[in-house]
C-alpha cells in the first residue's frame, strides 16, 4: 500500500511538465505587418502623425519630392536655384552657361566622328543580307 503510493508519487513527479518548453529552431514569420506601430518603450505608446507611411503631406512640392526621391541613387537637379527665389527667381545669366563644359557632350551624335558608330558599308550590308554568301560571289 505504502509502496504503491510512493511509486505513484514518484510517477507524478516524473511527469511534472516544466513551463520552459523546447521550441526548436526559430523561423521568421511568413507574414509580418510592417505598418509603423509604437515602440514598446515609448513613454506615451503613440506615434506622431508624421509616421503614417506614404502620407501625401511628406513633400510640399514635386521639386521637394525630387530632391529626396531615390531611384538607384538620388535624383539630382540639373539646375541649382536658390530656395528663396524658386524656379525662375534668378536671372538666366546668373545660372551660367547652358552649354556643356569642354569635353562633355549631351549626346553621342555630338561626339567627334571618330567616336561615333562606324558607318556600315554596302558590302557589309550585302554580306549580312546574304548570310555571308556575297563575300564569296
Amino acid at each position: 500500500m505504502y509502496a504503491t503510493r510512493a511509486l505513484r508519487q514518484a510517477a507524478a513527479h516524473a511527469q511534472r511538465t516544466p513551463s520552459i518548453r523546447f521550441l526548436g529552431p526559430r523561423t521568421i514569420p511568413s507574414s509580418i505587418d510592417h505598418t509603423p506601430k509604437p515602440h514598446p518603450a515609448s513613454p506615451d505608446g503613440k506615434l506622431p502623425a508624421s509616421f503614417v507611411s506614404n502620407s501625401p503631406s511628406r513633400h510640399s512640392s514635386f521639386s521637394s519630392y525630387r530632391d529626396h526621391a531615390q531611384q538607384h541613387g538620388p535624383l539630382q537637379k540639373s539646375i541649382r536655384y536658390s530656395e528663396a527665389n524658386g524656379v525662375g527667381g534668378s536671372s538666366g545669366s546668373a545660372l551660367g552657361s547652358v552649354a556643356a563644359p569642354a569635353g562633355m557632350y549631351f549626346d553621342t551624335s555630338e561626339l567627334p566622328a571618330r567616336f561615333r558608330r562606324a558607318p556600315i558599308e554596302l558590302e557589309e550590308i550585302e554580306a549580312v543580307e546574304s548570310g555571308g554568301a556575297a563575300l564569296f560571289g
Partner: peptide, 14 residues
C-alpha cells in the same frame, strides 16, 4: 569623354 560623376549632373543615375 565624360567622367561618371560629371555625367550624373546631366543625366539620371540609373
Amino acid at each position: 569623354v565624360v567622367s561618371a560623376p560629371a555625367l550624373s549632373q546631366w543625366s539620371r543615375a540609373y
